[in-house]
Nucleic acid binder design. Sequence first.
DNA 1: ATCGAATTGTAATAAGGTAACAAATTGTGG
DNA 2: CCACAATTTGTTACCTTATTACAATTCGAT
Lengths: 165, 165
Amino acid sequence: MWHEPDQGDAFAPHDHALCQSRALAEAEERLRQQGARLTPVRRRTLEILLEAHRAMGAYEVLDRLAEAGFGRQPPVAYRALEFLVEHGLAHRLQRLNAFAACLHPGEDHAPVFLICRVCDKVAEAHAGNVRSELSSAAGELGFTVERATVEALGLCPACAGRDAE
Amino acid sequence: MWHEPDQGDAFAPHDHALCQSRALAEAEERLRQQGARLTPVRRRTLEILLEAHRAMGAYEVLDRLAEAGFGRQPPVAYRALEFLVEHGLAHRLQRLNAFAACLHPGEDHAPVFLICRVCDKVAEAHAGNVRSELSSAAGELGFTVERATVEALGLCPACAGRDAE
DNA sequence: ATCGAATTGTAATAAGGTAACAAATTGTGG
DNA sequence: CCACAATTTGTTACCTTATTACAATTCGAT
């Protein structure tokens, strides 16, 4: 029924409960190694992102945190989100002013994001080639790439199918 | 002294006055063809971006427009900037919430931006390969790329040189 | 137990962006 | 030239996103 779970492919049908619990387990393991703490706010924030399984604005996350009994002030959400991003457990999507849980933390990845303009789902694509082409194009101008933002807007397979009908 | 002016390479030493006046001339030509009007606010906005030769926030542009006698309200700047972006005369940098003049309008380009984290200058790199790698990585997941944002943060040659000393 | 560091709560405010509508300008057909 | 429609500009009001600063609390290790 489910195909073999590819952690990066949010567009493919898959078992959400499973990918959530795995991401959470990986997060705990990773943070333990780094000596960082997954405190209640941080944990809840990650769960919120994982449950939504899409990009969420900081204020949307904040509302959910408040419902769970945490503070209602922006820094509460921004701090937790920043922590997750710094530790590779979530990503920030510049194009949307939003955040999404990382679906395969642990890998040393600098992902490329695919954002469906219809359903707002976000997938992370493997993109070693994109990065290396970028570095080489930059290198021609003597520029050294340190971090890169690669975000594509378009149509996911499900929405493209619906469109075509 | 100046090497042959490469319009995309903001990092290379070059004659600013020349690249500004050329960009402006190209803008006029392009808009004439499209039947769009380069009104005073729009023209001044483009000049402001060209003079700065770096990315500027909308409110910074707005201040300059106000100095020049135009309205002081955000929509004044946002409308002019949006017009320029729509007509390929400027770009929006998601990563910085900012705008920069396009240095080679007319080419059918979807540029890659190189942003120096030290001096804030922005260059546009030719990036056909980056785009095609992105499309093919997306294609593997069945995703169709319509628009893509590719922005790299790093060190320009001048600042890298200064760093190394 | 206690001290210092990390974390969380809160208030206040800055920065970025848009909606809605009125006034002015421009271009066009009569 | 005049009137009319379309475009452009000005302005008000407001919304969303993000940060600074500081107080209160909790955690961990001596």
